[in-house]
Write a protein that binds this DNA or RNA. Structure first.
Lengths: 134, 134
DNA sequence: CTGGATCCACCTCGATACTG
DNA sequence: CAGTATCGAGGTGGATCCAG
C-alpha cells in the first residue's frame, strides 16, 4: 500500500522509498516557467478573476505576445482558466480563472509566503556560495 | 506602500497591479526542474534528513551522476542542504537538509497535497483539450 | 485586438569518458 | 565512491513579421 509523506505518494522497497510518478513535478514545472506565476497572480487580484488579453499584456512587464499566448494556452489546457472569445470588431478575449484555478490560489499562497519569508536568506546563501568559489 | 495578495508583494499603479521582482519564480523554477523535488522528497523521509550520494543515486530511478551532482549543488547554493565530505578511502559524502530546507517541507506539502487532490482532474482537462484539437 | 508562423540563441539535460 | 569534462540533442523563450 502507498503511504503519504509531505504530500507525496510513495511505496517502501528494499532499496528505500520509491516515489510515485511525479505529478507534482508536472505542475511545478509549469508554475516554474517564466511567466505562469505572473499571469496567475494578475488573474488572482483581478475583479472576477477575469482579464482581457491586452490588459494582461500591458500589466506584465516584458512579456511578448507570443509568450503570453503560450502561457495562457498551457493554463487553459490544464483547466486552470477559461478563454472567452467575443467575435466583435475588434475582437475581444477575456481569460477567467476556473473554479479549480481559483482553488489553487490558497495552496499556492502558503508556499509563496514561505518563499517570501525566506527569500533574503536564500539570496544571502547564494551570494556566500558564489563568493566562496571565486 | 506594498500590499500582499496570495503571498505576493505588489504595488497599485494606474495600469493595475505591478508585482515585485519575482522571488517565487526563482524558487519555483528550481523546484520545477527535473530532479529537485525527488531529491528533496528522499531527504525529507530519510532518518535525520540525511543521505549519502550513492543512496540518493540508487533511490532515484533514472538520474545520472551528473544531474544528481548538479541538483545537489543548486540546493546547496540556496542553503537548503549541506554537504558533509569525509576524506576516507573510498570517500564518503552525506547530504543533509538544513534547518531552512526542513522548514520548507510543510509549506511545500500544502501545495503538493493540492496537486495530488486535483491531479486527476488536471489530467482529464489536458486529455479533453488535446482531444478537442485533433 | 488577438494571435499564428518563423527563425534563432540559449539553456537544460542525457550519454559517455575520465579522475582523485 | 563521488565526482568533473565534454559533446550533442532537444526544448524554451525572444524577435520579428504576417493575418483575421
Amino acid at each position: 500500500m502507498d503511504k503519504l509523506i509531505n504530500g507525496r505518494r510513495y511505496t517502501e522497497t528494499e532499496q528505500g522509498p520509491r516515489f510515485a510518478p511525479c505529478a507534482p513535478h508536472s505542475v511545478l514545472a509549469r508554475l516554474g516557467d517564466k511567466w505562469t506565476i505572473l499571469v496567475m497572480s494578475h488573474l488572482a487580484v483581478a475583479p472576477g478573476h477575469q482579464l482581457r488579453f491586452s490588459t494582461l499584456k500591458s500589466g506584465i512587464e516584458g512579456i511578448t505576445q507570443r509568450m503570453l499566448t503560450l502561457t495562457l494556452r498551457n493554463l487553459e489546457r490544464d483547466g486552470l482558466l477559461i478563454r472567452h472569445y467575443f467575435p466583435e470588431v475588434p475582437p475581444r478575449v477575456e481569460y477567467e480563472l476556473t473554479e479549480m484555478g481559483a482553488g489553487m490560489l490558497p495552496a499556492l499562497e502558503g508556499f509563496t509566503s514561505w518563499i517570501r519569508d525566506n527569500w533574503p536568506r536564500i539570496e544571502d546563501c547564494r551570494r556566500a556560495y558564489d563568493e566562496a568559489r571565486r
